[in-house]
Design a binder for these strands. Sequence first.
DNA 1: CCCGTGTATCGTCGATGAACGATGTATCAG
DNA 2: CTGATACATCGTTCATCGACGATACACGGG
Lengths: 108, 108
Amino acid sequence: MSDTNCIKEIKLIPLNQDEEEKLAVQAKALAHPVRIRLLKILAAQPGCIGGDLVSTIGLAQSTVSEHLRILKEASFITTEVQRPRTCYSVNQNELKKFNSLFATSFRL
Amino acid sequence: MSDTNCIKEIKLIPLNQDEEEKLAVQAKALAHPVRIRLLKILAAQPGCIGGDLVSTIGLAQSTVSEHLRILKEASFITTEVQRPRTCYSVNQNELKKFNSLFATSFRL
DNA sequence: CCCGTGTATCGTCGATGAACGATGTATCAG
DNA sequence: CTGATACATCGTTCATCGACGATACACGGG
């Protein structure tokens, strides 16, 4: 390993502000263990009723609802209202898009 | 598309709390556009002096230093001290690990 | 029409995050 | 030894987050 990989002149990178903002916003939606758990549960089945998620997670209904709202705002889940219930489903395509945007952004 | 994908009985998922926590913690480190930008810059070259990053980002030195600390704590970058300078490098392996943990967690 | 049911939303409160300037610290040049 | 350099850390301030209970809301059943 070389003693220093440091360069003298920084190589400027094209600034794609929209993409970077989207990555950051979606990462923020993932930045909570309860939301990770919710996504994992939803990823394992075609869809879930909210109440089942509430009892599985074990937090207040309003808290779980808020986490779900954040996931939806990040496009990671979709909802289908069936009054008085709501069915939540994972948006696999958006998860895949996040994963590939991540990979291309950092040249993986 | 079926009218409802909702299931009656939720399918329980193995609870891997450590992995879920790690995903959330690392996602939190990514949850800021400046940190995304820093990672992108670092991913484009073998290493960077902190001061160059500060002038490229255009925020206060202490602010950039804090963002770099967060990225380091998440293992996304490494540092090599060369007093009085510090050379920052991306940890590509950890980025790849994040990407694959993400993919397996959500069954992509 | 009214009630029960399941969610969404609101208001609150304590905790955490983001930005900054000021200061501390370790090395090198002279 | 002294000053300059480059980064880390501290303390402060304002904004945002996370959790909760209370309440609003929209439909279906009686």
